[in-house]
Amino acid sequence: MTTILIDGIAYGMLLFVMASGLAVTLGLMNFVNLAHGAFAMIGGYVTALAMNRLGMPFLLTLPLAFLVPALIGAVAERMLYARLYRRSHLDQVLFSIALVFMAMTAADWLLGSSQMLVTLPGWLQGRFEIAGIGIGRYRAFLIVLCAVLVVALQLVLARTRFGARLRAAVDDQRAARGLGIDVGGIFAATFAMGSGLAGLSGALGIELMGLDPTFPLKIMVYVLIVVTIGGTASLTGPFLAALIIGTADVAGKYYIPELGAFLIYLLMIVLLILRPQGLIAPAR
């Protein structure tokens, strides 16, 4: 029971890191980017290829799994996404879903459709016991690392000058520019950061979710559910939603395998009926 709870929390925190970039671009910048999962996939492939082909140790590949998608995200934002900020949400959906299919096809063509496997270092394999409760080492590693990321992300948004300028740009773009804030640059940096976090989560998620060219679509469902249930008014909502969805998904697949994969949709329906504005509703 406790083991499942811990597995669920680890999975939920991973989902949050995966969804946080989307929560920021959707919640703060009001941009629907369904291709978010493609950046997660890129991060996953960076880690898998660096480990399997270059023989890099797992931990060393993680910064790369952040940087490469972040860089691609920055370029894509300036060249493609920036043109769609003022367009309707439908245009944004159509554009970004096309990117998903292009990314999937490209991955299939370049790397094949089979699952990518990675071997975690020995110290992350197996489990240890605390007070008779078995805890997977990798799950514990995920919880700690994701918790650090969550706190760091929250601090950057709430306490730094960058965070204040981002919030100002979101509040009132015209006034922000008139007061010297380079809104375009701030948005590009934010988008890159979100893409990087997605990439990192994709790398961390290989062990839990596997990695193949359909990854962006698989992930899209989860991150959209997290953002939908959580609401985009703050990061607290998606964080709670990710924990709920993660735990429910793991517990559901374990206890009621027949219902397993459907449980999260049921949960989403119930939560949206109870709180249509999301767990944490906008303050307005």
Binding site: A164, R165, A168, D171
Partner: peptide, 24 residues
């Protein structure tokens, strides 16, 4: 230094952040 007609205070920033976020 622009003081717009509608004032356009950033509502999700504190008073102090409003002053420091764009300061030079």
């Amino acid at each position: 230094g622009w003081v717009p007609q509608e004032r356009n205070i950033f509502r999700s920033l504190t008073v102090e952040e409003n002053l420091t976020a764009t300061a030079r």
